[in-house]
Design a protein around this nucleic acid. Sequence first.
DNA 1: CTTACACTGAACCATATGGTTCAGTGTATG
DNA 2: CATACACTGAACCATATGGTTCAGTGTAAG
Lengths: 121, 121
Amino acid sequence: MVQCMTARLDASFAALSDATRRGVLEQLGRADSSISDLAGKFRMTLTGMKKHIGVLEEAGLVATEKVGRVRLCRLGPRRLAEETAWLEAYRRHWAARFDALDSVIEDLQQKEKAHGRKRQK
Amino acid sequence: MVQCMTARLDASFAALSDATRRGVLEQLGRADSSISDLAGKFRMTLTGMKKHIGVLEEAGLVATEKVGRVRLCRLGPRRLAEETAWLEAYRRHWAARFDALDSVIEDLQQKEKAHGRKRQK
DNA sequence: CTTACACTGAACCATATGGTTCAGTGTATG
DNA sequence: CATACACTGAACCATATGGTTCAGTGTAAG
């Protein structure tokens, strides 16, 4: 789990690219859970869930601890600070890029909102 | 490219999980580029780069337009608003979760700092 | 017209991913 | 002790990913 920033971004974005894993993170935000808890909640085998937990743990997003025969999963040490920073930087860059092109940004915002206002171009 | 939110999150986080693609987005933030431009800059074949562009386009992060024999690539309509929102919600949840467990958060922050120091480049 | 150039598509390859089953191992518990 | 239960690991499977080469197609330029 010792990795440079680009590898960390790779790992955490990849971890977040699966709906099940995002769901697991949300669940663990509510309560620590065992692997079978999660497997049940997301309707998949224990083994399958363990793999997801492995991915999340590798990315530092989940931490686990074996307690008796149960493996307890909780949110891990990483707070996705770098990932948030990357996204924010991107959004700033995006805005800057299109501020230079008034008509284009206007057009795109209209399209995105899909608010039925007629285009003027 | 019409997809529900969870599929969009899947697609965009997956698109961002590759360093080359993140690089392409940064590059396109600076200047629109042709596929061969990008292929050259990232030292890979035209075909390889076209696949990356395909992924980014599918995720709505890049838009392209054929101009003569060149395909012009620029930043796409999506501003990663939902992705940012997801991350922010996670971070808020993370904080809330560990505010309830003083000693634990302290421990984890120390661990994270220690790791950060070791990982410094 | 000819040539070069940018792209496109198909085919291929190695590896990764997301899931399964099955056969253990270790720990509670009656 | 016996049994059930939680996990673990290996093996397998289908599909996806990240890259390549090669053989086109279409357009620009000489």
